[in-house]
Design a protein around this nucleic acid. Structure first.
Lengths: 237, 237
DNA sequence: AGATTACCACCTAGGTGCAAAGGT
DNA sequence: ACCTTTGCACCTAGGTGGTAATCT
């Protein structure tokens, strides 16, 4: 009974919102104490073996070897330098892991507990990122093989999904004012900063998906499996 | 390798507070939407096999076959009638179940998500109790036996703990005013009802354990295992 | 100058007992 | 009479970006 992950399909939730941010150049705040992502990374999963155990993880890989800076006069991102030294990448286990395929598939899987930090010495299990660097979130589905010789088949028990629209630049303070306004318009916790008169909001900042008849999308949009990786990469780096 | 639960020891947390309530006659609010218990049922566990999987559960059994009423003039509980028809008892699985013994033992296990309701048609998974009836909370440790013939050994894989000081009468509104005042004095969420001047509080309502040098207690106080019960009782009643 | 930090007012989300109203 | 329900003000707990101070 091989290939427990080959049929797995993953659909990104809130894709319209992610795309709206991506068009402006998504920024995510990093703080010493740890900051949640917004939008939250959420997926809908299908094609798992309902009775099998799976572990779900996320990590963040550098998109390139660059350090960026924001040019306010031109409202654009510029390459500032070569990337700073990368810290060893951490893995974030979804707190419900491990769980049966039936559990993961019956409702949206949300990584709302995940936090981003720029503290290299963080001991709260947050994801350590370099500010002013660009990252690609990755999502991993790991089949928990109960067999004794499971390590022999480990390379078959993983599957990785990357959604290009979830890329972002880590920042300690927002640079692009349009990103700030879209965050304020769409994040319920930032309601205190909204203009009292909704008519004042530029159309760009309104959430198209709220009034979009095609939400959720009628056509499924799947992430692209980016190939397998070694089990050592997950547990020891 | 039999008897995975025989060595398990369970210590009730906040025992001094429980005893303070018990001396007055603990009351727990039940509502249609579900109400949390206060104090929260919390335990510290030792003696598990760190590598074995356990499921932790709670249920509530009637202390007697009586329905009570409160006599305000004498400030005491009286027997009002025979008990109303008992609803099929539900089991509350600790949301972290199943988990390894090492996980359960490394910190306090808290049942703060558990809610009590008087709604016989509740479909939120809350514990259904009859108001004005008296109950004894029970705590169950279940070893998850990976063997195929696990049902043959099921009677050995359970252990039940009852703490007499956690007994209570379910109510829709507090009857004993001293219970109300102790709840207000000790539950952080009821701080809005506290007298602004702490010096006004009767000594009885002060939380002895806060200034008690013996907190947490230096002597361990264990619950009394109340014997084994059949696996069918847990999963099918 | 550019990037980071600490503190803040303002939210969301939900746990309290109270008081008045409703039910049987 | 006795018990239950509902709406409420007042909390806890924690997620927002703004702002001013601080670091390098």
């Amino acid at each position: 009974r091989p290939h427990f992950v080959t049929g797995v399909k993953v659909q990104l939730e809130m894709q319209a919102l992610w795309q709206q941010f991506d068009q402006l150049g998504t920024e995510m705040i990093v703080t010493k104490a740890g900051r949640r992502m917004f939008p939250t990374f959420q997926v809908h999963i299908s094609g798992m073996d309902p009775a099998a155990d799976y572990v779900l993880l996320m990590d963040f890989i550098p998109v390139d070897d660059k350090r960026y800076r924001y040019a306010f006069h031109s409202s654009s991102w510029l390459v500032a330098a070569r990337a700073d030294v990368a810290t060893p990448g951490r893995m974030h286990f979804h707190p419900d892991s491990p769980a049966k395929g039936s559990q993961w598939m019956k409702q949206t899987v949300s990584f709302d507990a995940l936090k981003l930090t720029n503290n290299l010495l963080d001991d709260n299990g947050h994801m350590i990122l370099n500010s002013m660097h660009r990252y690609q979130p990755r999502f991993h589905v790991v089949y928990v093989d109960p067999r004794q010789d499971s390590q022999l088949h480990a390379h078959r028990n993983f599957c990785t999904f990357s959604f290009p629209e979830t890329r972002f630049i880590a920042v300690t303070a927002y640079q692009n004012h349009r990103i700030t306004q879209l965050k304020i318009a769409s994040n319920p916790f930032a309601k205190g900063f909204r203009t009292t008169d909704p008519d004042d909001w530029p159309v760009t900042y309104l959430l198209a998906f709220i009034h979009n008849d095609d939400y959720p999308p009628s056509h499924s949009v799947f992430g692209t499996p980016t190939g397998h990786f070694n089990i050592e990469n997950i547990f020891f780096f």
